[in-house]
């Protein structure tokens, strides 16, 4: 995994443009039900905003709150151009709903989900490809 150009690993049905995420909980394509082989593929790291929102209250476990006091998270659903699928993720720190709009270009980023004494646990997040323009709707 290249941390400067991260990709999500998804599932793809062999011989079909049928993609799934996460791969280990893939659904099925009824066109090939029963016989499909699932391959691991790198999904596009860019897409456009389908919608966005926030969680102004801390989500319950198994979410791990790693800000004290809790800092509201922003969440975006982003449609990948090539795979034509929408993937949910947090938006990187520093962006709120006022900085986003449907159709906006986004790219994948890596960030720390939480850490314990031994490890940092990483997660994908979404990040606008362009810096914030003032006055953007």
């Amino acid at each position: 995994m290249d941390s400067d150009d991260p990709h999500l690993l998804g599932g793809k049905i062999a011989g079909r443009d049928s993609y799934f995420f996460p791969r280990h909980l893939a659904g099925g394509d009824p066109g090939v039900a029963g016989s499909a082989q699932l391959e691991a593929v790198e999904l596009s790291s860019r897409g456009t905003v389908w919608s966005y929102t926030t969680s102004d209250y801390p989500p319950p476990p198994p979410f791990i709150v790693n800000t004290d006091p809790y800092k509201p998270i922003t969440v975006a659903a982003v449609q990948l151009r090539a795979e034509k699928m929408v993937i949910l993720g947090q938006v990187v720190d520093g962006y709120g709903p006022d900085d986003l709009h449907v159709g906006q270009e986004m790219k994948l980023a890596l960030d720390v989900l939480y850490e314990d004494d031994d490890n940092e646990y990483m997660v994908w997040k979404w990040q606008p490809t362009e810096p914030i323009e003032s006055g953007l709707a």
Binding site: S55, V75, Q90, P97
Partner: peptide, 18 residues
């Protein structure tokens, strides 16, 4: 919940914002 913090209202918010 674990990876995204996507509570039920998060999904409701996505649809409302759209």
């Amino acid at each position: 919940f674990h990876l995204v913090g996507a509570t039920n209202p998060v999904y409701f918010g996505l649809h409302a914002r759209r």
